[in-house]
């Protein structure tokens, strides 16, 4: 109940004060360069990784990236840069 109320409060704040949503609400910020790069900020850790699939833990739910020839170029506690041929980016809600 409290959690839901807080969520509403935050959404209202970002709407009214025009604050960036990724900071206020801890959402991932995803930058893609064509099909070849994907850069995800604000993730919560690596779940699975293979050369065709990457699964990242987010604050809420997971992010699934599918493609070919995946290589993690850099990984930092909250950032990840993936290279390869990306075909799908899917949000999975729990």
């Amino acid at each position: 109940m409290v959690k839901k109320w807080r969520q509403h409060m935050r959404r209202w704040l970002t709407d009214k004060l025009e604050l960036p949503a990724d900071i206020i609400m801890d959402l991932p910020r995803i930058t893609m360069v064509g099909q070849i790069h994907i850069y995800v900020e604000n993730h919560r850790g690596l779940l699975t990784f293979s050369d065709k699939e990457l699964r990242l833990l987010l604050k809420q739910g997971q992010l699934l990236v599918r493609g070919e020839q995946f290589v993690i170029k850099t990984i930092l506690p909250e950032e990840i840069l993936l290279e390869g041929k990306i075909s799908q980016v899917i949000y999975i809600d729990e």
Binding site: L46, F49, V71, I72, P77
Partner: peptide, 24 residues
């Protein structure tokens, strides 16, 4: 649990790059 190892590395401030998977 190779992924877990990488997560642990990242959390312990070990810079990791060019991660590639060869098989499961």
């Amino acid at each position: 649990g190779v992924e877990r190892l990488i997560n642990a590395c990242v959390r312990n401030d070990i810079a990791v790059w060019n991660v590639k998977k060869h098989g499961d």
